[in-house]
Amino acid sequence: MIRDVSLPDDWEPKVREALADVLPERRNAPLRPLGAGLDNVTLLLDGAIVVRLPKNSDGAESVAKEARLLPELALHWDLGVAIPRFLFTAPNPIGPGSFCGYPLVPGEVLAPEHWHARGLPGLPETARQVAGILDALHAFPAEAAGKLGAPSWDLREDFAGDLAAVRAEVLPRLTPGEGRTLLAVWEGYLGDDANFAYRPTFTHGDVSLDHLLVTGDEITGLIDFGDAEVGDPDYDLSYLWAEAGPDFVRRVQAHRGLPFTVRLARKLDFWALADPALDVLFGLEQRTPELADDALRTLRARLAAAADR
């Protein structure tokens, strides 16, 4: 989550006017910025209600998707942790689509470095909890998820389509050795048919450490289902691989009774590189040089780590 929240000068009266229609009893309650991502800004209302406002069409699409999916998840699937339960959706007063509000999900949002400072990835219970969350998520019927708006994700088609832009825009920003490594990993992933022999599965799509909310040493919430899709279930390990580490993912798989294979490790290595490479492209497209530069630093650090293995 991006902590530096940028809002238009007149955001507060517009948001309060919109809230008067959906939560009139809280129209004048304390309201402050909480955080921001690439696609949404979040506010905290009365210390208890998260208000999320899309900044662009992707954010609007994610709110609409969550409004369809989350009630079904909450009603029929026990993830073992709390998830957002929308109180309302209504026309967005400062951007496209609809904005939403839901009771604050219990727990802290912690950056990866704070997870490690607390020793959370090393705790046996943490891996067990994550394993249970993933199993419960992946049990949600893919067909039902599709009918509720979770798109089918053809990973091979998408990553093959991204490769030309990566060659043109990202490789020139790397050293020749870094570029060769990235290209070899990318082409290796696309060229292995076994990487795409998965059963299409409902996935969260963004199980990063800052979306797993923590109370003490326990995971108590899971947020941000805006990237949910039907695709490769292994993808839900990708951010954990990059942020919590390979040993953590091995322990998660052991709790799930699933094998940890060389092929899985290679897939996760690829996704750990592809994610910041695509963020470089996004930053360049959006003319946000700080985002592109930050993603490039992450990519180069991960390429260096890959070279050391």
Rank of each mutant, 00 (worst) to 15 (best):
residue 202 F to E: 03
residue 194 A to W: 11
residue 217 D to F: 14
residue 268 L to V: 05
residue 186 W to D: 01
residue 184 A to L: 10
residue 251 R to H: 08
residue 226 G to N: 05
residue 198 Y to W: 14
residue 249 V to E: 05
residue 197 A to Y: 07
residue 245 G to M: 05
residue 264 L to K: 02
residue 239 Y to A: 14
residue 224 D to T: 03
residue 252 V to C: 04
residue 193 D to V: 10
residue 232 D to F: 06
residue 237 L to R: 00
residue 231 G to A: 11
residue 199 R to N: 12
residue 200 P to K: 01
residue 221 G to A: 00
residue 245 G to R: 01
residue 214 V to T: 03
residue 222 L to G: 00
residue 243 E to H: 02
residue 271 W to R: 01
residue 196 F to N: 09
residue 227 D to W: 07
residue 223 I to L: 10
residue 235 Y to R: 04
residue 200 P to D: 07
residue 195 N to T: 13
residue 275 D to N: 12
residue 219 I to L: 09
residue 243 E to N: 09
residue 182 L to C: 06
residue 269 D to Q: 15
residue 270 F to P: 05
residue 198 Y to E: 03
residue 192 D to V: 11
residue 216 G to P: 00
residue 270 F to H: 03
residue 184 A to S: 13
residue 216 G to T: 06
residue 218 E to Y: 09
residue 271 W to L: 03
residue 214 V to P: 11
residue 270 F to N: 04
residue 185 V to H: 11
residue 211 H to N: 14
residue 260 F to A: 15
residue 255 H to F: 13
residue 225 F to K: 03
residue 214 V to N: 11
residue 191 G to V: 01
residue 256 R to H: 00
residue 267 K to P: 11
residue 201 T to I: 03
residue 243 E to P: 12
residue 189 Y to K: 00
residue 275 D to T: 14
residue 234 D to Q: 08
residue 242 A to H: 02
residue 250 R to C: 12
residue 232 D to A: 03
residue 262 V to R: 15
residue 242 A to W: 06
residue 218 E to A: 14
residue 247 D to T: 10
residue 272 A to W: 05
residue 185 V to E: 14
residue 246 P to S: 14
residue 226 G to I: 05
residue 257 G to E: 07
residue 225 F to S: 01
residue 262 V to H: 15
residue 238 S to F: 11
residue 216 G to A: 08
residue 251 R to I: 06
residue 227 D to Q: 10
residue 226 G to R: 03
residue 246 P to W: 15
residue 272 A to C: 01
residue 187 E to W: 13
residue 190 L to F: 13
residue 189 Y to I: 04
residue 270 F to S: 08
residue 230 V to K: 04
residue 217 D to H: 13
residue 252 V to L: 09
residue 194 A to N: 11
residue 227 D to Y: 05
